[in-house]
């Protein structure tokens, strides 16, 4: 019962959030000086007569007032219609669907890799606190926190694609292959470098949090007791350290979905990887408002889900909170 109530509460929060985000986004976009009709027609703008222009505006509903336009947009959103992309001349839903998978693959790979690596090296740093190993790991993390992700991407692109020729320069599918024939393997192959870039940067956050949390745990009385009981090193770590550290660490990692998405935008741009990130940049640069709005909303959901999962981990997996909640 409690779980149901919790989920309902969360869903209401998401709904309110999405309404607010959609309103703000729409407001911002409609204040923009970019003319959607001009963006749509492009270079042939000069050949369009005022009458034709009006016809287009009427077709898109641009002749109506902004509140009416917002209402229309929200109404069609509710029915699952995200509008038509001006840039790709196709329903936004179709444009996004394929890119969503690509981005999901990229971010998923990067997230897993960063999480695994971060927890491992963060643990090593904490177990060897204040030794040169720890200092090296921390130094590495602080260095990464200051590194522009897209620049790191450029370096990897230069090294692995241009010099070593191990990976393709751009495009998530080989040239000349119809997208339906692209195998999963091809996709993964093209996602490796951008995912690597993302995860190298993402490691720093998880690693530092893991280290801090584990150090905190290592100072707890039950660790001293475990040592007195003869547990040391790896045995101590897996029996008591890891168990107590892993939930908070994974939780923090989930809460970093926002940075992951932002990183993916840059990474996809560097590697010309056709995902949501590349699409939002194209949409923004070319005034493709329906596409832009849709991706903004998706990114909001994405961040929300990350925070939600982080919360769930804390609330429902920790026996203290789970069972404690049942009793009350």
């Amino acid at each position: 019962m409690q779980l149901v109530r919790y989920l309902i509460k969360r869903s209401i929060r998401l709904a309110i959030l999405l309404v607010a985000v959609s309103f703000l986004t729409f407001l911002l976009v409609s204040l923009s000086p970019i003319d959607p009709v001009r963006a749509y027609i492009g270079a042939e703008m000069l050949t369009v007569s005022p009458e034709q222009r009006e016809a287009i505006e009427a077709y898109w509903g641009l002749d109506q007032s902004k509140p009416v336009q917002y209402w229309q947009w929200v109404k069609s959103l509710a029915t699952g219609d995200l509008g038509t992309s001006l840039l790709y001349r196709a329903p936004v839903a179709d444009v996004i669907a394929d890119r969503f998978l690509s981005s999901f693959l990229l971010m998923g790979l990067a997230w897993l890799l960063a999480g695994l690596l971060g927890i491992v090296i963060g643990s090593v740093a904490a177990m060897r606190a204040n030794t040169w190993v720890d200092r090296m790991i921390r130094g590495y993390c602080y260095l990464l926190l200051s590194t522009p992700g897209f620049w790191l991407g450029l370096l990897l692109l230069m090294i692995f694609s241009v010099w070593l020729g191990l990976f393709p320069v751009g495009l998530s599918a080989p040239v000349g292959v119809v997208s339906s024939e692209v195998t999963v393997l091809d996709r993964v192959y093209h996602a490796i470098l951008p995912a690597l870039t993302l995860s190298i940067i993402g490691v720093a956050n998880v690693c530092l949090h893991t280290r801090e949390k584990l150090l905190d745990i290592l100072n707890q009385p039950f660790i001293l007791q475990a040592k007195a009981n003869g547990f040391t090193g790896m045995k101590l770590y897996f029996r008591h350290g890891f168990r107590n550290m892993v939930l908070p660490a994974v939780s923090v990692h989930f809460a970093s979905f926002g940075e992951l998405f932002g990183g993916a935008i840059l990474s996809e741009q560097v590697f010309s990887y056709p995902g949501l990130g590349e699409a939002i940049v194209e949409a923004g640069l070319n005034g493709d408002i329906p596409l832009l709005l849709a991706i903004v909303l998706i990114s909001a959901c994405f961040v929300f889900i990350g925070n939600f999962l982080a919360d769930v981990l804390y609330q429902w997996i920790d026996p203290r909170l789970r069972k404690g909640g049942d009793q009350s």
Binding site: F222, L224, Q225, A228, N229, G230, R239, R243, D318
Partner: peptide, 28 residues
Amino acid sequence: RGKEIVLIPQSLEALDPLMTVGKQMKAL
């Protein structure tokens, strides 16, 4: 440690909060 000499600790927090009592009792 834990084989020839054992410690009965002062703090109740000496029990790992995330491990069942049974498992901790089996430790030694």
